[in-house]
Structure formats: structure tokens, C-alpha cells
């Protein structure tokens, strides 16, 4: 922590809470990626990190830098908007790929996969 001025207790408290909450949510999402059993269940877990998780960290960054530089620092919003708009695209493509590969592999693309989804 070099080169950082003291932002004050209130700002530090808000930043600390937001950043820890965001990181914890991302961690739980990644844990879900490990723990859940099938691919279709695992798709749900990382969204925690990419929505509320990154939202909290970005908000913390906005609060901290706005206080440090004594002016509104808002360019984190760009990342937030970008992530919100792009995540559906990748996840829809992935879901479609998985369902199509299930169909080709003999399943009906709707249920558990016939070939090895051991988690």
C-alpha cells in the first residue's frame, strides 16, 4: 500500500465491505463450477461472479477512487455495462453448443448426457 492517501473511515468501510462481498461471491461461483454435477448445472454458477460479484468490486473501485481523487471516477461503469451485455452472448452460444452436441451424441439434448458427465 504505497502511494495511497487515507480516504477516511467511512469510504474505507464501504469499500472493504463491497470488495470482500464481491470476491466472496466470485469464489462461491467458482466453487459451484467445481461442485455441481452436470454441465447444465455448472452453467449457473459463474454468473454469480460475472453479475453481482463484479458489480460489487466495480462499485468498490468507483467509491475508492472517487474519494482518493476527489472527483467522480465513473469509468468502471463501462466494464459493468460491457460484462452485462456480453455474458448472455457467450452463455447462449455455450448452451446451444452443449445441447447440439448432446443431440448428435445420441441424447435428446434435454436431459443428462449419455457420455460421461461425472463432475
Amino acid at each position: 500500500m504505497t502511494g495511497v492517501n487515507d480516504p477516511g473511515l467511512a469510504v474505507a468501510l464501504i469499500t472493504a465491505m463491497l470488495v470482500v462481498a464481491g470476491a466472496a461471491l466470485t469464489l462461491v461461483g467458482a466453487l459451484g463450477l467445481l461442485r455441481l454435477k452436470t454441465f447444465y448445472e455448472r452453467v449457473h454458477a459463474p454468473t454469480m461472479g460475472s453479475t453481482l460479484g463484479s458489480g460489487c468490486v466495480l462499485l468498490a473501485s468507483i467509491v475508492l477512487f472517487s474519494a482518493l481523487e476527489s472527483r467522480p471516477v465513473l469509468h468502471e461503469i463501462a466494464i459493468g455495462v460491457f460484462v452485462t451485455l456480453t455474458t448472455p452472448v457467450t452463455f447462449m452460444l455455450l448452451m446451444r453448443a452443449a445441447m447440439q452436441r448432446d443431440r448428435i451424441g445420441g441424447g435428446d439434448g434435454r436431459g443428462e448426457t449419455p457420455n460421461g458427465d461425472d463432475g
Binding site: V43, A45, T47, T51, T84, T87, F91, M95, M99
Partner: peptide
């Protein structure tokens, strides 16, 4: 709607 559904964990857009 796709953005909303994807942004809420627990639901994902399949088709």
C-alpha cells in the same frame, strides 16, 4: 430478456 435471464444465476437461456 436474455440479458435479464442470464444475469440472474439459477436461470439460463437454453433455446
Amino acid at each position: 430478456l436474455a440479458c435479464i435471464v442470464t444475469a440472474t444465476p439459477g436461470t439460463s437461456w437454453a433455446r
